[in-house]
Amino acid sequence: MAQTKNNTVIQLKDLKKRFGIGDAEHYALRGIDLTIKKGEFVAIMGPSGCGKTTLLNILGLLDRASDGEYLLDGRSVEDLSSHKQAAIRSKNIGIIFQNFNLVPRMSVIENVALPLTYKGMSKTKRLTRASEVLKAFHLSEREYYMPWQLSGGQTQRVAIARALVNEPSIILADEPTGNLDSKASHIIMEELSDLHAQGNTIIMVTHNPNLTAYASRVIHMADGRIESDTSQHKAPSAPVYGRPLGGKKPKADEETEDSSAPTTQPTDAVLESTKSIQPVRRSMAKTRVRVKKVKIKNVRKRDRK
């Protein structure tokens, strides 16, 4: 996990996004300052409607900010032609949508192969490559299913496979595990961790605090602003439930549902802890059991309250 710390990929300066005009005017983002370096694995958390998806859309060049600046690899995206932006989306960015967004009239394998089309790959190569990726997600038997024939979890895995098929260096994932049980979630997270380990930048929105353990950095948003960021040493870090790290399971006393509760955990510690994921991953079954236990514990605790 070589961290090229000075290699900034994404830089946001006072980024704002306004929706509607006049009386209907409404800011989904109210000034985001954020710097993300190459190889970071950022988890974004926050209540529903706080602007997480809006932020990812802007980062993925699908939407434009109303105000502020977005530098991608040091270049302002405002200066890029729409053609160039499309090329960047094609080559460097993979997006996993909150609602999957598969093309309904295309089979699973065609959906996964779609991004390769715009990279100018021949059909046989596209399908071969898509098949490989689907295999990694245990979907080989579903290649020729149509999207409406899939379960929610399978749909999600297909969406992820599609985002990863052209090996993007930046992966934007909007609740990639939203529909999955914890076993399936962890399989996905393993995959993302692998990509992270290969030096890719990952930005993931999640509501599941368990999964932030895979991230090297956790950002909390509220009402269009960044409320806390583990990399800035000032803000409280996420309450980490059910961390799948074997030895580093947080004590029950430290666990709290109040995200504003201060934490003493510095960034390096987080990084340190994520590093230690690797060996554990090989014994997934064990980890999973642990996660489940912790989860149950939490629920019980909540019930008691």
Binding site: G60, L62, S82, H83, A86, A87, R89, S90, K91, I95, F97, N101, L102, V103, P104, R105, L114, P115, T117, Y118, K119, R162, N166
Partner: peptide, 16 residues
């Protein structure tokens, strides 16, 4: 419409 959005998000340009 949705398909167009998806195609764009996976790298299709206006020209495509």
């Amino acid at each position: 419409t949705r398909e167009i959005g998806i195609r764009k998000s996976v790298g299709a340009s206006n020209r495509h």
